[in-house]
Computed example of a mutant assay.
Amino acid sequence: MHFYGLFGEHLSHSLSPLLHRSIYQKTGLQASYKTFAFPPAELSEAVASIRTLTISGVNVTIPYKETVLPFLDELDPLARQLQAVNTIKNQAGHLIGYNTDYAGFGLIFERRKWSPAGKTAVVLGTGGAAKMVIAYLLHQGIQHITIVSRSPERFESTDKTTYTNYTSASTLQGDFLINTTPVGMYPDTADTPVSEGMIQHFGILIDLVYNPSITTFLSLGRKHAKETANGLDMLIGQAVRAVEIWENLEIDSSVIEELIQEFGEKR
């Protein structure tokens, strides 16, 4: 039996253990999964414990997707490009970092037949998840992305990306408005990263938060007849891809649809 887990700081409401158990059951894998919550000061020891306890692999969530990088032995090409890791594989004591959030985020677009090509987007946040979202949109041919940060002066704009602050962002408009921050996540469910007025300027809203399933951000979008998607597809897509990497197998897309149906009903 292989032993897997989730690294993060606050994990009491994570769906990952239930999700992974369901994946193992549907695919006939003999594996177990548990959460490992710890403060930032213990990250180095936590990564070392993967080798010590012969844990076969872990997922990584907020706030360690970027800070974990120096403690790994190798990064796969996508993780190296994004400089963000959400999956670690223990290959005989050699720790390899991957980013499966990219595949999970893509699932949101694929299942709805949304295309970023030639469109414009505003991305809220600049963390590891934001890096992944920006890379995906650029790879898919987005025309331009505006990234909203509390400290935009720390970043350099390009011909495809512009950084701005939340005050200046209030007048922006575009095709996609994507929240990559934890604002609105349980238990602070009344919070929204931007105002209702700003939300009205976009056609499609995506929130990477999945708990609650309808955040205040998405609820305001629905109020104004916007298309919306939460982070459940991404959660399931990245988890399935992580299992494929850990177990060296390919999981049928029908399993993904079953999981989305199953966990969508649980929300």
Rank of each mutant, 00 (worst) to 15 (best):
M1V: 05
H2D: 11
G8T: 11
S12D: 15
L19I: 08
R21Q: 15
S22M: 10
S22H: 08
Q25Y: 12
Q25D: 09
K26Y: 14
G28D: 06
A31C: 11
S32F: 11
F36Y: 15
A37F: 07
F38E: 01
P40E: 05
E42F: 14
E45N: 15
T54C: 10
G57P: 08
G57H: 02
N59Q: 04
V60I: 06
V60A: 00
T61W: 04
I62M: 10
P63T: 04
K65A: 10
E66T: 11
D73N: 09
L75E: 03
L75K: 03
L78C: 06
L78R: 00
R80H: 11
L82S: 08
A84W: 09
A84T: 08
A84N: 10
A84E: 08
A84S: 14
I88K: 01
N90A: 01
A92Y: 13
H94D: 00
L95S: 02
I96H: 01
I96C: 04
N99L: 04
D101A: 07
F105A: 07
G106T: 06
E110Y: 05
E110R: 11
K113C: 14
G118Q: 07
K119A: 03
T120Y: 09
T120F: 05
A121T: 03
V122P: 00
G125V: 00
A130T: 06
M132T: 14
M132G: 01
V133G: 12
A135W: 01
H139K: 15
G141N: 08
G141T: 00
Q143S: 13
I145D: 12
R154T: 07
F155C: 03
F155W: 09
Y163N: 05
S168P: 00
T180R: 11
V183W: 00
V183D: 02
G184S: 10
Y186G: 04
Y186W: 05
Y186Q: 03
Y186C: 00
D188T: 13
A190T: 11
V194N: 07
E196Q: 09
I199E: 11
Q200I: 08
F202H: 02
L208F: 08
V209G: 09
T216E: 12
L218V: 12
L220T: 12
K226L: 13
E227F: 10
M234P: 04
I236K: 09
I236Q: 05
A239I: 00
V240Y: 01
R241A: 13
E244M: 04
W246H: 03
L249Q: 15
E250F: 04
E250T: 15
I251R: 02
I251T: 07
I251H: 08
I256H: 08
E257Y: 14
Q261V: 13
G264V: 12
